[in-house]
Amino acid sequence: MASIQISNLNKIYPGPKPVRALDHVDLVVEEGEFLALLGPSGCGKSTLLNILAGFETSTEGVVLFERQTIDKAGPDRGVVFQEAALFPWLTVFDNITFGPRVQGIKRAVYEQAAREMLDLVGLSDFAQSYPSQLSGGMRQRVGIARVLVMKPRALLMDEPFGALDAQTRLTMQELLLDVWQRLKITVVFVTHDIDEAILLADRVCVMSARPARIAQQIAIQLPRPRSIDDLTSPGFIRHKAEIMQVMRAAHSQKHIAAA
């Protein structure tokens, strides 16, 4: 069953010089699928994610989540932000339980789940720490845990590891693979990192530069469960070569169009 259905989606930012961010995007994400949106920075892939999250509205087109039109943000679609976006005045535990608390769920109900999530992301010892006391990677773990605790039916991730150092990024990718393997929920993952897209996703959508269009979709054939060891496997290298070619083509096409 399709989790997310997008057809003929257009997004134009109005103004004296209107900017077209998305150009006739059609996309279907199956339930439980891990989809990566790969494209250069500022190409509009974050705009697409923000529309799915309900943070922004489309100019034209249909965007459905579980057959319902998306009109606002909600806990069924958990968003993980690039800079974690934790509340600095709350402890790790209070950040993680923010969702259940504003939804009026009783502490007795969510406390156990919150402890489990802390454990899952390896931060049990930091429940009473403040975000300023955590490293970037740890903050992003909290960002993931606070979303998972709400039991979302889709995870929308906007370059969540983009600001981390290479070492931490690998650890976080492995953590995400592990989490996804257990929960098998729909994930839409925005990134500009080819390796990251191939390693994590079932399918990679290569986006062209502004206005964003889906240039090509590539199914990733690597077996699951995956680990960072896959980064050097022959299958991985083949996919990488293919995607780089597609990206180059998408780029040069744009140049021809512009000329």
Binding site: A53, G54, F55, K72, A73, G74, P75, R77, G78, V79, F81, E83, A85, L86, F87, F98, G99, V102, Q103, R146, V147, M150
Partner: peptide
């Protein structure tokens, strides 16, 4: 992003103001 995060977690207008 803090406001968006709160919206995403189901906070209403009053919760966003107050929390």
């Amino acid at each position: 992003d803090l406001v968006r995060a709160a919206e995403m977690m189901g906070a209403g207008r009053f919760d966003i103001l107050w929390r």
